[in-house]
Structure formats: structure tokens, C-alpha cells
């Protein structure tokens, strides 16, 4: 299995190549001076080259594979819970409003360490406090549902 470094280097090559391609379609030098494509072209080009060198080096050496580096068992579930809960919050908050999305997210996270009853109570409590502090005290226009929460 390929090492994580190979994938990360691949990501940088891809990202750099996209920026390089876009930069090459911009003006390199204009009538009054340097164009918007000048520095991005050089920097992204260098990034692609260096990432390619790193990719070759990573392919040659016997680096740790993704399976070695990624957590297993409970650790993996913990990390996936964090990412999943966060993603769930972003997806649902425009429709359900801050409070419900926040309770759902916190419930998933608290449930990793507490019983579901305690997790639910903590989620409601923390959401309530934050809704008051950010919404009322700091007057941040939080995303809300049709009921105003």
C-alpha cells in the first residue's frame, strides 16, 4: 500500500497544477507593470516540481502506509465522529437552525464519553449557554430556523 506521503504529494501536485494552469491564462506582464499571473505562475510551478520530487522520493522509500498511520478501533471512530458531527452541523444548520444542529453535533461527540442521557443533557445545556452568549450578548446573527432558534 502506498505511503501517506505519496497521497499528500499527489494532492500538492494536483493543487499546484490547477493554480499553474489558471495562472498561465492570466496576464504575466501588462502595460503598466506585472500582471496577476506572474507570481502565482512561478510559485505554483515550483510547488509542482518540489512535490513531484517528494513524490518520487516517497515512492522509492518504504514509508508508513495509510493503514499504519491512520488510527484503528476506538481512535478511528473518535476521529470519524468528530468529522461526521462537524459535517452534519454544516449540512443541517441552514435548515434546522443553530440550536438543533448544535445539539445533534454535541450529542454525537458527548456520546463518545458519556451515557446517551448525560450526553443529551450536556448538549442541550452547552447549546443553550452558547446560543445566549453569542446570540444575545455578542449579538452574532446565528443561523436560525423559522421559530427563531
Amino acid at each position: 500500500m502506498k505511503s501517506l506521503e505519496v497521497y499528500i504529494s499527489g494532492f500538492f501536485i494536483l493543487f499546484g497544477a490547477i493554480i499553474f494552469q489558471l495562472a498561465s491564462s492570466m496576464k504575466y506582464y501588462g502595460e503598466y507593470g506585472p500582471g496577476p499571473g506572474l507570481l502565482p505562475l512561478w510559485i505554483s510551478g515550483m510547488m509542482v516540481v518540489l512535490a513531484a520530487v517528494n513524490l518520487v522520493a516517497a515512492l522509492k522509500k518504504n514509508g508508513k502506509s495509510l493503514a499504519d498511520i491512520l488510527p484503528k478501533g476506538t481512535g478511528l471512530i473518535n476521529v470519524l465522529s468528530c468529522v461526521g458531527a462537524y459535517a452534519l452541523f454544516i449540512v443541517t444548520v441552514p435548515y434546522l437552525g443553530f440550536t438543533i444542529s448544535s445539539i445533534a453535533m454535541l450529542f454525537i461527540l458527548f456520546s463518545r464519553g458519556y451515557t446517551w442521557r448525560r450526553g443529551l443533557c450536556l448538549s442541550i445545556l452547552v447549546t443553550g449557554i452558547l446560543f445566549f452568549v453569542f446570540g444575545s450578548v455578542l449579538t452574532v446573527p446565528l443561523p436560525v430556523n423559522e421559530f427563531g432558534w
Binding site: L122, T127, L142
Partner: peptide, 15 residues
Amino acid sequence: PFKIMLPNIMIIMIL
């Protein structure tokens, strides 16, 4: 315990 810190830190970061 981190199990109480983590959810709180995450929601505060989001906000």
C-alpha cells in the same frame, strides 16, 4: 477530561 473539553472546543471554534 478531554471528553468534556473536545465538544465544547469544537462548537466554540465553529462559532
